[in-house]
Design a protein around this nucleic acid. Structure first.
Lengths: 192, 192
DNA sequence: TGTATTATTTGATCTAGGTCAAAAGAAACT
DNA sequence: AGTTTCTTTTGACCTAGATCAAATAATACA
């Protein structure tokens, strides 16, 4: 989706504002499994996924990767707290397919927030939307069984499931690969 | 804390804006255990706690209450998704002590967002802050043991622990009362 | 101050899902 | 096409924390 169209779907920017705003974004091609941000670095950019799937993940002491979030077409992608508070990121960021992203730096984004009331509004809407998603995930993790969590995911992200490794999904849902594999086995039986 | 001082700590409003903004808030005294919002209702107001502790909780099918969030002095309190998306709330909202709150309706808040760029900014900053807190809790719930979660809470909310019933804290942390009680027992042993 | 009510602790089980280890299947590389 | 590497599945066993039930302890209330 074109960047300007995407932004305009959220807030109805006047043409001149939109043109200026878009000029601060860069279009980047990013390859599979190449980290955009590593744990410990400050995440300096906010990305918008035009094409591809990405994820953020956390590296446990024992070296295991825990997927924290997936990002698909049309979603903003970043190590949120690091980007907004400008502190070292706990998370790695990478794409799981060769992808096309738009990016903007924190400085430029702040500049646009200050320059356009509409842009500030966009920022507010996006963070409340993100907030809702995180709250939903928290509820899923805190209150539901492993099987229910997987069903929830099938609903929320039906397409992701076939595009990313099972291990990533399992850790995203707070369970082991083995458990997810077993769930899948019986799940398909239930549906047939 | 005075409302105007609280707002000004976040964004430096000019005096005239601030005066107008504050005029849209109401000051309310609310008593212990009286629901501000019930599950199923749309949450029409955003509250700021001047004095007291509140919580949001969710009622499971079996009638058990699960505390979702605590709100202390200086924090905004609401059933967030319900307030922002104007859909029926999954959560109940109540104070755990007789309290003093400031409140503003969704309509008035929207009006202020539209009227003042600074106000929009305040909204954005508050939601990113909230977002960070939810992400932190999600990490705690997803990755940590019951004991670690309790320690985390002691750090983040040292004062809440002595002000609210143990059962509320346990469900907030995603464990049973019994487990929390057992943790407390050995915890105090560790610290002595 | 004694009684009822609610909150917390303690004990005895039970279970969902984790861990460890190895086999089977897919992809990627020569 | 054959070997190496990575991913997914399967099996056997184990543990953190849940559940159920009952005993204390603390609060409210008459």
């Amino acid at each position: 989706m074109k960047l300007s169209r995407f932004l305009q779907n959220i807030v109805p920017f006047p043409a001149d504002e939109l043109e200026d705003i878009v000029s601060y974004f860069e279009r980047e091609t990013v390859y599979k499994n190449v980290p955009l941000v590593k744990g410990g670095q400050v995440c300096s950019k906010l990305y918008l996924v035009e094409e591809g799937v990405g994820r953020s993940y956390y590296l446990k002491e024992d070296g295991k990767e825990i997927t924290q979030w997936f990002f698909v077409e049309g979603q903003f992608m970043s190590s949120i707290e690091s980007f907004f508070q400008q502190n070292p990121s706990l998370y790695y960021l990478e794409m799981l397919e060769d992808s096309v992203l738009y990016s903007i730096t924190r400085e430029n984004l702040d500049l646009l927030f200050a320059r356009y009331h509409n842009m500030e509004k966009l920022g507010r809407l996006l963070s409340t939307e993100m907030l809702t998603r995180v709250v939903n995930k928290l509820n899923a993790i805190q209150f539901q069984t492993a099987r229910e969590r997987y069903d929830y995911m099938l609903n929320e992200y039906p397409n992701i499931v076939n595009r990313v490794p099972l291990g990533n999904i399992a850790s995203y849902l707070g369970m082991t690969q083995e458990t997810l594999s077993r769930i899948r086995k019986t799940e398909s039986r239930n549906k047939s």
